[in-house]
Amino acid sequence: MNKLVVFFVVVALAYSMAAPVSDEAIARRRNLPALHQEEHRDDFGQYALRYITAEGIFFSERGRLIPTPDGKDHVMAVEGEFSYIGKDGKKYHKKYTGDFEGFQISEEI
C-alpha cells in the first residue's frame, strides 16, 4: 500500500512540474526558503556551491585554482550548471565553464 501511495505522489509531482506555471504560483514559490543549500570554501578561495529552490531551480558551481600556462601563477577556473522550469512548463538546463579560454555556455533541454 505504501508503495502505491508513493507512486501516486511521484506521478502527481511530475505532472504538476510539467504543466505550465502561472505568474502567481511562481511568485508564491519565490517567497519560500531554499530546499537545499550547500557551500564549501577553502583557505585559497576555492569553492563549491549547490542550491535547490522550491520553484524548481537547481544551481551548482565549483571554482578551483589552476596554474597559468607559464606556471608562474594561478587563476580561478569556474564550472557550473543550472536548471529551471520555464513558464511553458519545460525544464531548461545549462552548463558553463570559465577559464583561460573564456566563458562558454551550453544549452540543453
Results as ranks from 00 to 15, higher is better:
Leu13His: 11
Gly86Met: 10
Asp43Leu: 09
Gly71Phe: 03
Phe7Glu: 07
Ala34His: 10
Lys91Asn: 12
Glu38Asn: 15
Ala34Gln: 11
Gly71Trp: 02
Gly80Asp: 11
Lys87Tyr: 07
Val75Pro: 00
Gly63Glu: 03
Tyr47Glu: 01
Leu4Pro: 01
Val11Phe: 14
Ala48Asn: 10
Thr97Tyr: 01
Phe103Gln: 13
Val9Trp: 07
Lys95Asn: 07
Val75Gly: 01
Ile66Gln: 08
Glu24Asn: 12
Gln104Asp: 08
His93Glu: 06
Pro20Leu: 06
Ile85Tyr: 07
His40Met: 09
Pro69Ile: 03
Lys95Leu: 04
Ile52Glu: 10
Glu108Met: 08
Leu35Gln: 11
Glu81Gln: 08
Gln46Asn: 15
Ile85Asn: 09
Ala54Asn: 09
Thr97His: 03
Lys3Asp: 10
Leu13Ser: 11
Val21Asn: 00
Lys90Val: 03
Thr53Ile: 05
Ala18Ser: 13
Arg30Ser: 09
Val11Glu: 05
Ala27Trp: 03
Ser60Gly: 11
Val10Leu: 14
Ala19Cys: 05
Arg64Cys: 06
Glu55Arg: 00
Tyr96Leu: 07
Glu107Asp: 14
Ala27Lys: 05
Pro20Arg: 04
His40Tyr: 07
Ile85Gly: 02
Lys90His: 15
Phe82His: 15
Tyr51Asp: 05
His74Phe: 12
Arg30Gln: 14
Phe82Cys: 07
Lys95Gly: 03
Thr53Gln: 04
Ser83Asn: 15
Phe100Trp: 04
Glu55Met: 00
Tyr51Met: 08
Arg41Val: 14
Pro20Phe: 09
Arg64Trp: 11
Asp73Glu: 14
Glu38Gln: 14
Phe59Asn: 01
Val5Gln: 05
Lys95Gln: 11
Arg28Ala: 14
Phe58Thr: 15
Asp70Arg: 01
Arg41Ile: 11
Phe7Gly: 01
Asp42Gly: 02
Tyr47Met: 07
Val6Gly: 00
Gly80Cys: 10
Gly98Arg: 00
Gln104Ile: 11
Ala18Gln: 09
Met76Arg: 04
Lys87Glu: 09
Arg30Lys: 15
Met76Asn: 04
Met1Ser: 13
Val11Ile: 15
Leu65Asn: 11
Arg50Phe: 10
Phe59Arg: 03
Ala27His: 02
Asp99Cys: 02
Lys3Trp: 13
Lys94Ile: 08
Ala19Asn: 07
Ser106Val: 10
Arg30Met: 14
Ala54Gln: 13
Thr53Trp: 01
Thr53Ala: 10
Ala14Glu: 09
Ser22Asn: 07
Pro67Arg: 04
Ala25Asn: 13
Thr53Glu: 03
Gly56Lys: 00
Glu79Lys: 00
Val21Thr: 02
Tyr96Ser: 07
Val21Arg: 00
Leu4Ile: 12
Asp73Tyr: 02
Gln37Asn: 13
Val21Met: 01
Ile66Ser: 02
Phe59Pro: 00
Phe59Ala: 02
Thr68Pro: 08
Gly56Pro: 01
Glu61Asp: 09
Arg50Ala: 13
Ala34Gly: 08
Glu108Ala: 11
Gly45Arg: 12
Glu39Gly: 08
Glu61His: 06
Lys87Gln: 12
Ala19Thr: 06
Val21Pro: 00
Pro67Glu: 13
Ile109Pro: 00
Tyr92Phe: 09
Thr68Lys: 05
His40Pro: 01
His93Gln: 08
Asp70Gly: 05
Val9Glu: 05
Leu49Trp: 12
Glu55Thr: 00
Ala14Met: 11
Thr97Trp: 00
Ala54Cys: 06
Ala77Val: 10
Met17Glu: 12
Arg30Ala: 09
